[in-house]
């Protein structure tokens, strides 16, 4: 691009946004801050401020959770004993207490909650993929206008309240709810089917709430595929199904991974959906954590539950960061 071409774009932007930025800068940062920015301090400042924020409010909290998970419960505020205490003037006594972790493994309630959460998350992720993949595929192949409309329709529910969308399913699934009323009016069943407080309801809730998270990464991937690859496969005699399994599916693996992780990881710790739709005899681990914390006021055990959940999710989270980083570095 020529110098003048760049300059022309530059000037156009300056014109369009000019008045707005002038206003912003009149009431914005004072002159000395700009001076600071110009002397290389700016770079450090721009990196430093968000870094400090995230370290203080995201990283350090995990250290504190880890610390509290090793302490003893005590009846006070805050309800846990300090890990280290001064003995006399010169010595510190550190008490690491593994009892919370031992307790989690000794009581089958916790182990089964962990396994159940993984199972629910895995099954829901699978159904999410089953529904989301063909949808993403269809949207990626639609005409540009239809594509934009479809994408908007996918995202729109995501902007409305998550809580209310889960709530909507209560009205559909309960015994005198819409689905049972319709089925009985049509004479398909004579007894209402129990759907609330079952695994089925939780799967529905998770698939429903997380579907956009599955579709969007898949769509981003599928949209970039080169159509000539499929034509080449067809020329070489591959049937559409075979071309799909040999060309499209392998190419879309990064999208599948990203989508599945984006659904699976938060679903493991899901709290709202199982609380509203799920079983009462088998709790998911997110609910167990919150009950330990709020109902039993046992902060150390709640901390231990959180640390173990984090350990389970470390590998999926790192995989997610790997795919996410690759996606963001690549210009679209």
């Amino acid at each position: 691009m020529s110098r003048q071409g760049r300059l022309a774009i530059f000037e156009r932007y300056a014109q369009r946004w000019g008045p707005f930025w002038n206003l912003f800068y009149r009431f914005g940062p004072p002159r000395w801050s700009l001076l600071l920015l110009q002397n290389g301090w700016g770079r450090n400042l721009v990196i430093g401020v968000p870094y400090l924020w995230l370290t203080l409010f995201f990283l350090i909290p995990f250290v504190i959770v880890l610390k509290i998970s090793f302490s003893e419960i005590r009846i006070a505020m805050p309800p846990y004993a300090p890990l280290w205490e001064w003995v006399g003037d010169t010595a510190i006594s550190i008490k690491l207490n593994f009892a919370n972790y031992r307790y989690l493994f000794s009581d089958s309630l916790y182990v089964s909650s962990y396994l159940y959460s993984m199972q629910v998350a895995a099954i829901s992720t699978f159904f999410c993929l089953l529904l989301g993949y063909p949808m993403a595929y269809g949207i990626a192949r639609a005409s540009p206008a239809a594509r934009n409309l479809c994408l908007m329709l996918i995202i729109l529910p995501f902007w409305t309240s998550f809580l209310l969308r889960v709530y909507a399913w209560i009205g559909l699934l309960k015994n005198n709810g819409v689905i049972n009323n319709v089925l009985m009016a049509l004479g398909i069943v004579d007894q209402p089917i129990t759907m609330m407080q079952t695994d089925f309801a939780v799967y529905i809730g998770i698939v429903y709430s997380y579907l956009p998270f599955m579709i969007l990464p898949l769509y981003t991937n599928l949209e970039k595929h080169d159509p000539t690859l499929l034509e080449a496969a067809a020329d070489l005699g591959a049937k559409p199904a075979k071309a799909f399994f040999r060309v499209t599916l392998p190419l879309s693996m990064p999208g599948i991974f990203a989508g599945c992780l984006l659904v699976f990881i938060p679903a493991v710790g899901e709290y709202v959906i199982p609380s509203l739709l799920g079983r009462t005899d088998q709790l998911m681990i997110g609910r167990v954590l919150s009950d330990e914390f709020f109902a039993n006021r046992d902060w150390p055990v709640a901390g231990a539950v959180a640390i173990l959940m984090l350990l389970m999710l470390v590998v999926p989270i790192m995989l997610f960061q790997h795919f996410q980083g690759r996606e963001l570095r690549k210009p679209s």
Partner: peptide, 13 residues
């Protein structure tokens, strides 16, 4: 992707 219960608990602590 962090489950909300973990973020919430760690923030509170």
């Amino acid at each position: 992707v962090m489950p909300e219960v973990i973020t919430g608990l760690s923030m509170l602590l």
